[in-house]
Structure formats: C-alpha cells, structure tokens
C-alpha cells in the first residue's frame, strides 16, 4: 500500500543563539529574531525523517512538508532541509514565532493541506512534532487533524510499524519511560512525533538539487497566511531559567557519570 504522508513543521531560531524575549508590535518576540539563523523545528525534523523512511519502504508513497513561516527564512532553512530527504514543499508565508495562536496556525495549515491536488484521506498520515523548540502550544497538530476530520490521533510517538494487514502499530510515550502500544486499523491518522529512532540524515546535495526544483516554485507561490496571537494576551515572557555547571572530565566511566548526575539531582 502506498501512503500520502504530510508533515507539518516550521522553523525555530538556532538554540545556540542568544534568545532574548522582547515585546514587539505584534506581541512577544525574540530580540533580532529575523536576523538569527533558523533551523527546522527538531520535533518536526524527527517527523520528516520518519516520514521519508516510511515512504522509502512503501513504493508509490510521497512526503509533503507543509510549513508556515516567513517565506525568505523558509528558503534559507530549505537549503539544509532539502538535502536531507526527498519531499515536496507546501509553503505558507506568515509568522513562525512561538506566540501565534495555535488555532489560527492550524486553520491555515489545514486549508493548505486540503488544497493539495490528489489528496486521498484513506492514504493520509498526518505527521508533526508533538512539541516545538519555540513556545510550543502542543495543540496545533491536534487541531489540524480535527479540521481534516481525523480523529485517530497519537502524541509522543516514538515508533510506527505498518503491519501486513494495513494496520498501524504505534508506540506513544507515557509516564515512567514506558510506551503505550496502540493499533490503528488504517489511515488516516495523526501522529505527533517525539524523537523517533532515526538519526538526522547527512546533507546530500544530490537530494537537495532534486528537491529544490520543486521547492523554489513552491516558495514563489507561497500563500500569505497572516496568523497572529489572536485573542491571547501574554502578561509576561521569560526564558526557562538554566544553570550551567560545566566540568571537563575526560575518560569518565558511565557509572561515574551516572553517580555524578544522581548526586547533582540530590543537591550533593
């Protein structure tokens, strides 16, 4: 059986950059946000790589990446992402900031997905990240699914196995480092990926050149999607506090490292 795998994902600022919350004309933002280098949101990245693996295993399958972000920044990010795995881009030109209203974003994404020619819900697997490296609302993907009428939804997915009978065996993260096993009889389904199990593919310019032939036109015709913060009012925005206590120790054993971490957690 072939699948139509649609991955929703956008860009986030490079986490190595200095991320300083400021209040802009449209609400909260990051200082110099448009100047900072961006990456594909890592959770969306996991979803994309899993989608490509699945498509590679099932002849006739195809992967789309539906992405809402500033067109120019999307183009920059595609210079890397396009080299990872084969996919077709559906671009929406709008804000990718972490403070947009999840329902507005989801509405724009759902509309773009429904406009994909030849969309067949019986073959559709809707992928995305269950989280985001920006301020993840944790709701966007679910709302997209609802708008598409897909009620079989799974979050925190680490594994998807397509069984011989066409059913989907899915492992979702639950408490205590365990997985909940679900079986879904058939597509369509929404899968919000945790980390999956695949490494980030190396850049391959050959793949990139093939992808870019479609990506550049997609960016050219990216539809303006002016998503905003909606009715949400942010009273304050701060970065998560962090403390870095760095020790450089070479050749420590795993047991010693584990003991050090336990001691640190206990405040020792």
């Amino acid at each position: 059986m072939s699948y139509q795998i649609i991955v929703c994902g956008s860009l986030v600022p490079d986490p190595l950059q200095t991320l300083e919350p400021v209040t802009g004309p449209q609400g909260p933002a990051l200082k110099n946000e448009m100047m900072l280098p961006s990456w594909l949101d890592p959770w969306a990245g996991h979803a994309l790589y899993e989608a490509a693996r699945l498509a590679g295993q099932h002849a006739g399958s195809k992967v789309w990446l539906v992405s809402l972000g500033p067109k120019a920044k999307l183009q920059q990010v595609m210079m890397t992402v396009a080299q990872k795995v084969p996919f077709e881009l559906v671009a929406l030109d709008g804000s990718a900031g972490g403070f947009t209203d999840a329902s507005e974003t989801a509405a724009a994404l759902a509309e773009a997905i429904l406009a994909i020619p030849g969309l067949d819900l019986t073959k559709l697997l809707l992928f995305g990240g269950w989280e985001s490296a920006s301020r993840g609302a944790g709701a966007t993907l679910q709302i997209v699914g609802e708008r598409l009428g897909i009620t079989d939804q799974f979050q925190g997915v680490d594994s998807l196995t397509l069984e011989a009978d066409g059913s989907l065996r899915i492992l979702e993260r639950v408490e205590g480092g365990k997985h909940q096993v679900s079986v879904c009889s058939a597509p369509p389904a929404v899968l919000g990926w945790a980390t999956g199990s695949l490494p980030e593919p190396r850049n391959n310019p050959q793949v990139g050149m093939a992808n870019m032939r479609g990506i550049m036109p997609a960016l050219q015709k990216a539809k303006p999607s002016p998503v905003s913060t909606g009715d949400i009012t942010f009273t304050s925005v701060t970065l998560p506090t962090q403390t870095r206590t760095t020790q450089v120790i070479k050749d420590a054993s795993p047991e010693q490292i584990a003991a050090d971490i336990v001691a640190w957690i206990k405040g020792g």
């Binding site: 920059q76 210079m79 396009a82 850049n203 391959n204 310019p205 990139g208 870019m212």
Partner: peptide, 8 residues
C-alpha cells in the same frame, strides 16, 4: 546550488 553546498 551554492547555498546548499555551503550548508552541506
């Protein structure tokens, strides 16, 4: 193509 080789 050049932007990609840089990123690669």
């Amino acid at each position: 193509d050049l932007a990609m080789i840089v990123q690669s």
